[in-house]
């Protein structure tokens, strides 16, 4: 029996000694690990997009446990995730408005031509740093795709006409592209918002018209159609804080065709397909005609009424 028992005893003994050693070490080097941390890491999306501002999902989880981060700031996770996080941490969660990124420029090479030839590094930052960029409009999209490179979800398409377009269905609203754009053209907007002003040029009409044929001139005609359009200087923008729906004819009021309505077109089609703009122009003309007729009719009615009153008076 000895040849079997002895090795077993020796090995178990050795094992026990080591186990005892480790047990002691465990006490000495004890590190507190919050079990909520592991749970949080599990439910976070794991895309490590950095949209929350922390280094990766595990960084965010650590910040959540530490109490220095809000549960609502994970853009890809959205409201559902915020709720789950809330239940793990045992805190109340306020409502999250899902957001998507929007490239607020539609100035393709035809409407906003290049003012110079650019020879150099093919990134937007580099081109922007070089004498303010090669595009006539110094606020417009350079189309070199720094945002598309920054997007962890492949949600940004660089079109053939040198513009960046965010596909809203793919966008998680992490905001990496917002940080990547040297001209601050990309902004986060509520995903449910259908109408947008595709321009950020704050300059006056004369300067905008000199550089782009689809830029906002600050004419305020859109603001007459809906209270949701707010003017910041000479730039109209949709104000997300004002409640209400923008009427579908609002885009027709813009003489520059700067206002985009996703209820009628997909944003990629609007940017890439000239047919959309052609159709838009026809619809605009029709709306203007109808509007003119409506106004004329209203005027005639008013005049008629005045006449009637006058006649009554005579009688």
């Amino acid at each position: 029996m000895t040849p079997v028992i002895l090795p077993v005893i020796v090995l178990s003994g050795l094992g026990l000694v080591m186990a005892a050693l480790l047990a002691v070490a465990r006490k000495v080097f004890y590190v507190e690990v919050d079990e909520r941390l592991e749970k949080l890491v599990d439910i976070l999306p794991g895309a490590n997009c950095g949209g929350c501002g922390f280094p990766g999902c595990s960084g965010y989880a650590a910040a959540l446990v530490g109490g220095s981060a809000k549960p609502t700031i994970c853009p890809p996770g959205g409201a559902d995730l915020a709720e789950e996080i809330g239940s793990i941490l045992g805190v109340e969660v306020e409502e999250v408005v899902p957001q998507v990124a929007l490239v607020a420029c539609a100035g393709n090479p035809q409407s906003a031509p290049e003012r110079s030839t650019y020879i150099g590094i093919s990134t937007c930052e580099a081109a922007h740093l070089t004498a303010g960029g090669f595009k006539s409009c110094t606020f417009g999209c350079l189309g070199l795709g720094s945002c598309a490179v920054a997007c962890p979800f492949d949600a940004i398409v660089m079109t053939d006409n040198h513009l960046a377009v965010v596909i809203p269905e793919l966008c998680n609203g992490c905001g990496n592209c917002v940080a990547a754009c040297p001209r601050k053209i990309i902004k986060l907007v509520p995903a449910a918002e259908p109408v947008h002003v595709l321009c950020i040029n704050p300059q006056k009409a004369k300067l905008v018209k000199a550089v782009c044929s689809v830029g906002c001139t600050g004419c305020k005609l859109c603001a007459k159609q809906s209270k949701r359009f707010a003017m910041t200087g000479a730039l109209a923008q949709v104000d997300p804080t004002v409640p209400g729906e923008i009427p579908s004819h609002a885009p027709y009021a813009c003489p520059q065709g700067t206002i985009f309505d996703s209820r009628r077109y997909k944003v990629l089609d609007w940017i890439t397909m000239p047919a959309c703009r052609e159709e838009h122009e026809i619809l605009t003309a029709e709306w203007k005609k109808a509007e003119k007729e409506r106004k004329a009719a209203a005027k005639a009615k008013k005049a008629q009424k005045a006449k009637d009153v006058a006649r009554e008076g005579v009688r």
Partner: peptide
């Protein structure tokens, strides 16, 4: 290679 432009970019960043 546009070395200066690369370095200028790095400096700006």
């Amino acid at each position: 290679i546009g070395l200066v432009q690369h370095i200028r970019l790095a400096k700006a960043a």
